[in-house]
């Protein structure tokens, strides 16, 4: 209960931050809130089940595109709801057809999914609507975007905490440890994986939808930037993808690091990103939190 109280106080403090920050500070907070949300949502499915998904940007982009298409014809909350529904529907479709895949096949499929969605949207826009770029003229301030992302991020972490205490969370962890064992202990593999995948994908779609008014103009090449998928994975892994606060601990320092790198070493950023990726996988397989737990002599598993 104390922890819950501290979390709530922290959330209130974070929500009050925009009143004290410059525009750039707020921009940083938006970026961090966005990536914490993405990494946490990603970990909700992938961290537990260890199905590494590179489809983050597929859903993120669909969210942004939905707002771009609908922002002129309907109110923002309605467009947001549509984005969520479309994301959930897409995740359901994709999940049903692919969650039988595992290991590297799943990774490759999810990577291809982002490209597939991008090409389908491009094809549709070229051949049916005859335009490609779309404009988002919404009167949504940076603060409002920040608050929405903060709320979505808090919701994601709360949802993860809740799920981890339920049967669903246990089932997901068993699947992550050994899928065969999970099947033999009577876990409905398909339903369990699908539920987590749809929840995770819907949140990611909403994150894309909320962030999109900041860009004013979207086209498939802009919103389906594969870097978003890679960054999300590396952030979650760095913090510890199977821990509640792991993604947050990965996303915040990495985000600040990248921001610093883009100022100090603008030309070598991709190289550093690649090295970091390798470093995280080799040196911190359990993430920062797992590493810390080991250092302080705690049993990593018990602390989950």
């Amino acid at each position: 209960m104390i922890a819950l109280g501290v979390a709530l106080v922290g959330l209130v403090a974070l929500a009050a931050l925009p009143f004290y920050l410059s525009d750039y500070g707020l921009g940083l907070m938006i970026g961090m809130a966005g990536y914490v949300t993405l990494a946490s949502a990603w970990a909700l499915f992938s961290g537990q089940t260890r199905y590494i998904s590179l489809a983050t940007v597929a859903f993120y982009g669909v969210g942004a595109y939905t707002i771009a298409v609908l922002n002129e014809t309907m109110a923002y909350p309605a467009a947001l709801a549509c984005a969520g529904l479309i994301g959930a529907g897409l995740a359901l479709l994709v999940g049903l057809s692919t969650l039988r895949l595992s290991g590297i096949y799943f990774v490759i499929f999810t990577f291809g999914l982002a490209e597939l969605v991008r090409q389908v949207i491009t094809w549709f826009e070229v051949n049916v609507t005859g335009t490609l770029g779309r404009y988002i003229f919404l009167d949504i301030t940076a603060r409002e975007i920040y608050w929405q992302l903060l709320a979505l991020g808090a919701f994601t972490i709360a949802l993860t905490a809740w799920i981890m205490r339920r049967r669903l969370g246990l089932a997901l962890r068993v699947i992550g440890d050994d899928e065969t064992v999970a099947a033999h202990s009577g876990i409905d593999l398909a339903r369990t994986k699908l539920t987590a995948f749809v929840l995770s994908a819907t949140i990611i779609t909403l994150a894309g939808a909320i962030s999109s008014p900041r860009w004013t103009y979207v086209e498939p090449l802009i919103v389906f930037n594969p870097n978003v998928s890679f960054l999300t994975v590396i952030m979650a892994l760095l913090g510890g993808a199977n821990r509640l606060w792991g993604p947050l601990f990965g996303a915040v320092p990495l985000f600040l690091l990248f921001e610093w790198l883009s100022v100090q070493f603008p030309d070598t950023y991709p190289v550093i990103l690649g090295l970091l990726f390798i470093g995280v996988v080799f040196l911190l397989p359990d993430g920062i939190l797992g590493g810390l737990a080991r250092l302080t002599g705690r049993n990593g598993k018990a602390a989950r």
Binding site: A13, L14, Y20, Y24, G25, W245, F249, V252
Partner: peptide, 22 residues
């Protein structure tokens, strides 16, 4: 206990960040 400490870290990081920014 572990995640409580984790959260304290998070809170500390955030306040530090806010200071740097302002």
């Amino acid at each position: 206990g572990h995640s409580r400490r984790a959260f304290m870290h998070a809170a500390a990081t955030c306040s530090l960040l806010a200071l740097t920014l302002s």
